[in-house]
Amino acid sequence: MQIFHRSTNTISRATIFGAVFVIAALFWAMAEIQRSPYVTYEGVVKPQPVAFSHQHHVTGLGIDCRYCHTSVEDSNFAGIPPTKTCMNCHAQIWTNAALLEPVRESYRTDKSLQWTRVNQLPDYVYFDHSIHINKGVGCNTCHGQVDRMPLMYQYASLQMEWCLNCHRAPEKHLRPRDQVFNMEYQQPVAGNPALVDGQSFTDQDSLGLFLVKKYKLRTERDITSCSTCHR
């Protein structure tokens, strides 16, 4: 006895065929969610006790990154400045601003300002700022144009694929050491060459390969090895 009409054969075939696409779409959606700011916090501004503007302090006043992040050149941790660093200037500037009351309170009472961490790596990742700085990776290569961020946010996804993009081909991103803290740095082009050791470079490829040698970068195999970052 035939329960279903013959035409349902086509429907069942189409369903089986369609399932392939449905499953593929599910995988695609999962991958997208995993890479989305919902999971990575990329580009998400987090609430802070004080609405500190990097844009104002860096672009407006010309203060170097290292004035506050003092340990970035010789430690794995860039350093969040103590309240005293804020008070170096704000003891005399904007002394009545309500916005800065938490800073003054922290200074008066010796209680820490509890900033919300913006760039957070999982604990199973070993990361060191100093090695990146000293091998010619610019601040804004990973942190973005912090000098144009009125409120701080995480610029990159900080996912492993993002780390590896650079570790597989560091020469595409390296810059001379004296340009690491320059937020306006542009990769060299014919009209705007980079000078290193008296040599002029007009494209990133040649500059990058030169810097890989000059700064004695480890081989791609070494810096993409699991135990380099997961130790």
């Binding site: 672009t59 010309g62 170097d64 990154c65 001379p176 004296d178 340009q179 690491v180 306006e184 740095y185």
Partner: peptide
């Protein structure tokens, strides 16, 4: 200095 190598500290130049 001919070009940007003159930025001593490597800090961001003023806007």
């Amino acid at each position: 200095p001919e070009q940007r190598s003159g930025l001593d500290s490597g800090a961001t130049p003023p806007a």
